[in-house]
Design a protein around this nucleic acid. Structure first.
Length: 437
RNA sequence: GUGGAUGUAGCUCAGCUGGUUAGAGCACCGGAUUGUGGUUCCGGGGGUCGUGGGUUCAAAUCCCAUCAUCCACCCCA
């Protein structure tokens, strides 16, 4: 083998971490299905023109055959998100899908950006979207914050603050101010949380050439927050009028009202959220780990009216994406989430002596037959060592049996040390002892 | 992709201005304790000093390159 070295931005977890990751992915999947989203998987690659159609200068890994003509241009690239492949999938299979089409997709994506803590080049994205045929009621927009909140509530991770905003509101406000470079304004406003009021004011005037009072108004809007629909009054108080602004205001107010019963502090209107992707046309979401905002956004999405649409058919959609790898990579790295088990084994069958291997294997077989992950210790070491081996790997039970058949079978819970007689055809560990419940 | 910081045992680190066989704690292995663990005591193994070049009588220590990690820009999960 050639030199063995890690590749920057391509994380590989240890078994104990992967076990946690799988549990998280399972929880996410169950929650998605609970809300009626159907699973699909799209291929890892897309034609380059599909990938480039909606994002400007994306950091895309291109794919090329080793034997391709020397200077042949690459046709395909690895997808950098799964929203664009999904839009393509919907157009391709439109005839066979039922609308509104609710789907989830949990897949790896690849980006060529420079890695940092919580920023990877290969990572999992857990996406849910719903696409309507012609129309999609606003009620769908209101479903996602709740769904995300419920997922996070079930995971061993810090709480998430889910911020909601609306692109129409922002665009209408900017247009009402006479600003023409909407995209540029959004891009700078998006940094409000990071570079602060002064930084944003400066960039708005220096880079975009906005008048000081225009910039002041943008910042004033971006500072508005609220957990109910009261933000509407604050926006109106700024005295800007525009049709889009009114539309955005009422949409955002609707979403906030629909989330009012969620616990305080979880979901809020945050008028600084803009999001960089330019295909969003209405509601936008952005989530941060509470107390760990510096990791960046761990979940985001929004409504797009034109992503899957073409000249003839309107297929508006709304969706959100959860950054599983970013969350876990950060928590693992900081020791905020540590694994106590490196194997799914629940019972380690102790091996008394070499002659008893077949008998030990039979015990394991009888446990497995009833769905209990079991393994036989690799060698007939002293029982103290066999117990220690189980402890090191986080295996909760060690099974002992008397090869002469005199003392029968016993199972020891090595976390507490209790040891009781047990029948390999009947004994069952408690629900929590299974790693993947 | 641009700019910057860092890189010594499995882990956390020490190693002064370059000078003999590179150290500590924890972890690991063996024994005291010939089969029921996490205490104690005794002993032990383990390091191409990220990698590759260069300067020098001599490099973990100085220089260059490269890789990896982290930070800022950028982008966002």
């Amino acid at each position: 083998m050639a030199k063995i070295t890690p590749i920057s931005g391509f994380p590989e977890w240890l078994p104990e971490q992967r076990l946690i990751e799988q549990q998280v992915l399972d929880t996410v999947r169950r929650q998605f299905e609970l809300y009626g989203f159907a699973p699909i998987e799209t291929r890892a690659i897309e034609p380059l023109d599909v990938l480039l159609s909606k994002g400007d200068d994306k950091e895309i890994y291109v794919l090329q055959r080793l034997h391709a003509e020397d200077h042949a241009e690459a046709e395909f690239g690895l997808h950098f998100d799964i929203t664009i492949p999904f839009a393509r999938y919907v157009q391709q299979h439109r005839g066979q899908l039922h609308f509104p089409f609710k789907r989830y997709q949990i897949q790896k994506v690849w980006r060529g950006e420079r890695p940092q803590e919580g920023r990877y080049r290969e990572f999992y994205q857990a996406d849910i979207d719903v696409i309507g045929d012609g129309e999609l009621p606003l009620a769908y927009d209101a479903e996602f914050p709740r769904l995300i909140h419920e997922i996070v509530d079930k995971l061993p991770i810090p709480p998430l603050t889910i911020g909601v905003n609306n692109r129409k509101l922002l665009e209408g406000f900017y247009r009402g101010l006479g600003i023409e470079d909407i995209t540029g304004t959004l891009r700078i406003m998006d940094k409000l949380g990071k570079i602060g009021v002064e930084g944003v004011l400066q960039q708005l005037t220096d880079q975009l050439g906005l008048e000081p009072d225009q910039a002041q108004n943008c910042v004033a809007l971006g500072q508005i927050r609220g957990e109910d629909s009261s933000f509407t009054e604050e926006v109106r108080a700024l005295g800007i009028e525009h049709e889009l602004l009114s539309e955005g205001l009422s949409e955002l107010a609707f979403v906030m009202e629909a989330c009012e019963d969620l616990p305080p502090g979880r979901v809020g209107a945050d008028l600084s959220i803009a999001r960089g992707l330019d295909y969003y046309t209405g509601t936008v979401y952005e989530c941060y780990l509470e107390g760990h905002e510096q990791v960046g956004s761990v979940c985001g999405g929004g409504r797009y009216d034109n992503l899957a649409s073409d000249a003839k058919v309107k297929l508006p959609g709304v969706g959100i994406s959860l950054g599983v790898t970013r969350i876990l990579g950060y928590l693992f790295g900081r020791g905020l989430l540590s694994a106590d088990r490196s194997t799914p084994v629940v019972v380690l069958v102790a091996l008394p002596d070499e002659e008893s291997r077949l008998a030990a294997m039979d015990v394991a077989r009888r446990l497995r037959r009833r769905g209990i992950p079991a393994d036989v210790h690799h060698s007939p070491q002293k029982y103290g060592k066999q117990i220690r081996a189980a402890e090191r790997r986080g295996i909760p039970y060690v099974w002992f049996f008397d090869p002469k058949g005199e003392d029968g079978h016993q199972v020891r819970d090595i976390r507490g040390g209790q040891q009781v007689p047990a029948d390999p055809d009947a004994w069952t560990p408690s629900e929590e002892d299974f790693f993947a419940g």
